[in-house]
Amino acid sequence: MTGTPRLEPLPADRWDDTVTDALRPLLSPARMNPHDAGNVLATLVHHPDLTRAYLTFNAHLLVTSTLPARVREVALLRAVHVRRCDYLWDHHGPIAERAGMTPAEIDAVRTDGLDDAAERAVIRAVDELSEANTLTDETWSALRGYFDEPQILDLIFTVGCYQLLGSAVNALRIQPEAH
């Protein structure tokens, strides 16, 4: 992300119980600090109520979703690729690897070059949701061939959640963490 951040991560001296409570839906107590929370969450906690609500939703998508972890990562990687959010792409690469994707498969998400037919249907769904805010009957039928109703709902909401987050990260110009 180029440009000066529009909102800096909340400084450590402003972290209080309200801030850590906002992070509780997604982070373990050990990660509830400005360094371990990362720049996205450390920035979002400027609005603790919004952060808590968003993370409750996001935690479902990341932890208890009905989608297999690999499918979830294909969907969200494509969503952040479409949103041109390098921060989230870079953050989710290692998560996608832990979900069983190879580096070549992760790169193939950008070009719709995956071999698996279900994953190609997921990429098509992300693209249609991004371009038209709906799914064609053909894509809906393809998804129904691979996923049940709860999984399709989790897919649609995963795409929307990460499109939203990618837009927020870009609009706020959140910078990668310094290592």
Results as ranks from 00 to 15, higher is better:
E119D: 14
I156P: 00
A118K: 10
L129N: 00
W140C: 04
D112V: 09
R120Q: 13
E138S: 13
D127H: 02
S130T: 06
T139A: 01
T134M: 05
P94L: 06
I106K: 06
S141I: 00
M101H: 00
L77Q: 12
A117M: 06
I106G: 00
G100P: 02
L129E: 01
A75F: 01
F157K: 02
R124M: 04
R144A: 13
D115A: 15
I95Y: 08
H81W: 07
I156N: 05
E73I: 05
A121Q: 03
I123S: 02
R144L: 08
L129P: 00
E149G: 00
L153A: 07
A132T: 09
E119V: 01
V159I: 08
T134K: 05
E105Y: 05
D107V: 14
Q151M: 12
E128S: 01
V80M: 14
P94S: 04
Y87Q: 04
A108M: 12
V122D: 01
L153M: 12
I152C: 01
A121N: 04
E105G: 04
A121D: 03
I106Q: 02
E97N: 02
R110N: 10
D86M: 12
S141K: 09
V74F: 06
E119F: 11
R124S: 13
C85N: 13
T139S: 10
W140N: 05
A142L: 10
E97A: 06
R144Y: 00
A117S: 14
A117R: 14
G100W: 02
H81I: 15
A79H: 11
R144T: 15
L88F: 06
D86V: 15
A108C: 08
R84N: 15
M101P: 04
V82E: 04
A118Y: 05
A142P: 00
D154W: 06
Y87S: 05
T139C: 13
H81M: 12
G93F: 06
D137P: 12
E149W: 05
E73H: 14
D112H: 11
D86H: 12
I156R: 10
I95A: 12
L143H: 12
E97L: 00
D137Q: 15
D115I: 10
A104D: 13
I156W: 01
R78P: 02
D90S: 09
R84H: 14
E131R: 08
T111N: 13
G100M: 03
D86G: 15
G113M: 13
V126M: 02
G100F: 05
V80P: 11
A121L: 09
R84W: 13
R83L: 15
A75V: 08
L88D: 02
E149T: 13
A96T: 01
M101S: 07
D86C: 11
A108E: 11
L155G: 04
I123R: 03
D90F: 09
R98K: 07
A75P: 03
G93C: 13
I95H: 12
S141C: 03
G145W: 06
L114W: 09
L129M: 08
V159Y: 01
